[in-house]
């Protein structure tokens, strides 16, 4: 009897799997190790200490950049998720019509347009706008982040809406719920996991962004990634590792929280 095909029994499967995981995680592992180095070397480990975490926390530039990153990411994520939710509702709670597919494409196109192109385009537009209205604050950065976060927020929300049983909304209408009440008491509660996923995804994407930020930011508007990039150009110390470790812990924490939150809901 021939056994059914299983990729696990192919020769070299284990070796390849280990190689892949090593390529993915070994660099991160090394990065984490050196974050705890007591010396300022990135190649020579001398002893365990929290020195670089401490130094990063003392560094006003790091603190400022971190706060700015969180500020931009949270505002951008909230606005993007709001926009994406409305877009998802408009594109799923309708009978199909000519042009709907084009709208999907339009909403998702930013995922495919090279980031550098968007970055240059925004740089040009914003420099014009700055000239006209004189405002040079953080708003441009927030606007740019919001723009590229929308498609990321849109994807999980739309997926959730499409998988939702439409008869639930029909049933609500049958039971005297107006359109608003149907949304408020049936659609929205069932949509929450999707909205949370969209919010998280756009928050993380915004937090992580280098290219667009680098182009759009004015002087003194470094976010954490652009600050780190700047540091690398000078003398590189395990401080960058320490910041990375904190960011890593933060995103692991957020994903874990989300996982348990959505599990409890279902």
């Amino acid at each position: 009897m021939a056994k059914p095909f299983s990729v696990k029994r192919q020769r070299g499967f284990t070796a390849m799997a280990i190689a892949c995981f090593a390529a993915l995680y070994l660099p991160i592992f090394v990065l984490v190790i050196f974050a705890f180095n007591s010396a300022s070397s990135l190649s020579h480990f001398e002893g365990v200490s929290l020195r670089w975490f401490h130094e990063a926390a003392q560094n006003k530039q790091v603190v400022d950049a971190t706060l700015r990153s969180f500020h931009v990411a949270s505002v951008a994520a909230v606005i993007a998720t709001l926009v994406a939710t409305m877009a998802a509702l408009a594109t799923t709670r309708t009978r199909p019509y000519p042009g709907l597919t084009f709208k999907y494409a339009l909403l998702n196109a930013p995922l495919m347009i090279p980031e550098i192109v968007t970055a240059v385009a925004l740089l040009i537009v914003f420099s014009q706008v700055k000239g006209w209205i004189g405002y040079t604050g953080i708003g441009y950065l927030i606007a740019a982040h919001t723009a590229f976060c929308v498609p990321f927020a849109y994807l999980p929300i739309r997926a959730r809406l499409e998988n939702m049983d439409l008869t639930l909304e029909t049933a609500a209408a049958d039971l005297y719920a107006t359109r608003w009440n149907t949304f408020r008491y049936v659609t929205l509660p069932l949509l929450w996991p999707g909205i949370l996923a969209g919010l998280m995804l756009s928050f993380v994407i915004s937090l992580d962004d280098v290219v667009i930020t680098e182009f759009v930011k004015s002087a003194g508007q470094d976010t954490l990634p652009t600050y780190m990039l700047g540091q690398l150009r000078r003398s590189i110390t395990p401080e960058v590792n320490a910041i990375s470790v904190v960011l890593l812990l933060f995103s692991v924490l957020v994903v874990t929280l989300f996982f348990f939150a959505s599990k409890r809901r279902n």
Partner: peptide, 20 residues
């Protein structure tokens, strides 16, 4: 008349109970 104004209720084939 929209469904939410009609004093008529429905038992759906798949029940359509609110899962939340």
């Amino acid at each position: 008349m929209p469904p939410f104004r009609r004093p008529i209720n429905t038992v759906f084939q798949n029940y359509a109970l609110f899962p939340h």
